[in-house]
């Protein structure tokens, strides 16, 4: 077929320890566009892959900070300017009463940012990805441990990468071929 092209290579590893070792070797060999897939997060994998800490906290923190102030000011604005209403002789700007709602607004918007931000950083939802060409890859959510290298990586070479993955203990090495 003319449109056949390789989009990546997938290799399977036996257990979390082997995957961790493989990740270290991939990192040392200079690969960037690769990922280690596992059914659960593996402790120490970020370090092994040379990954930096997620920046999600820097998205949620500012949202929390801004939204708690917004909530507080919004309550003050509605009860003093937009719709002043004297109830049981209480002062219009009763800041003591605004805490609960300002807090709720902060938590709600921060949680939304955490979820949406996580999906955005992970580029999800994404229903089409080279790793899904492999049938074996279905094991990843059960008890499979995989390393995938994308063809876009600078180090990527169809034969050399395959040989390298084999040399670090990968089995069932598979080419991820797009057929379209």
């Amino acid at each position: 077929m003319s449109n056949e092209r390789i989009e990546g290579i997938l290799a399977e590893f036996k257990n979390p320890a082997e995957l961790l070792k493989a990740a270290e070797k991939m990192r040392d060999a200079g690969y960037k566009d690769y990922d280690c897939h596992s059914p659960f997060p593996i402790h120490g994998m970020d370090k092994a892959m040379g990954e930096k800490r997620s920046i999600l906290g820097w998205m949620v923190g500012p949202v929390a900070f801004v939204m708690v102030i917004f909530g507080f000011l919004f309550e003050g604005w509605t009860s003093t300017i937009a719709y002043p209403l004297v109830i049981s002789g209480k002062p219009l700007f009763s800041y003591q009463a605004y805490g609960a709602v300002a807090f709720a607004i902060m938590v709600l918007t921060s949680a939304l940012t955490a979820l949406v931000g996580m999906l955005a950083l992970n580029k999800l939802p994404r229903f089409h990805h080279p790793v899904f060409y492999s049938d074996r890859f279905a094991k990843v959510s059960d008890d499979g441990f995989f390393v995938s290298v994308e063809a876009g990586d600078k180090q990527f070479d169809r034969e050399k990468t395959k040989a390298f993955l084999e040399s670090i203990g990968g089995t069932h090495i598979e080419e991820l071929i797009a057929n379209d």
Binding site: D35, C36, H37, P39, L121, N122, L124, V131, V140
Partner: peptide, 9 residues
């Protein structure tokens, strides 16, 4: 996909 780059976030 259960990749560590996803698990991290």
């Amino acid at each position: 996909r259960g990749g560590n780059k996803q698990w991290k976030h």
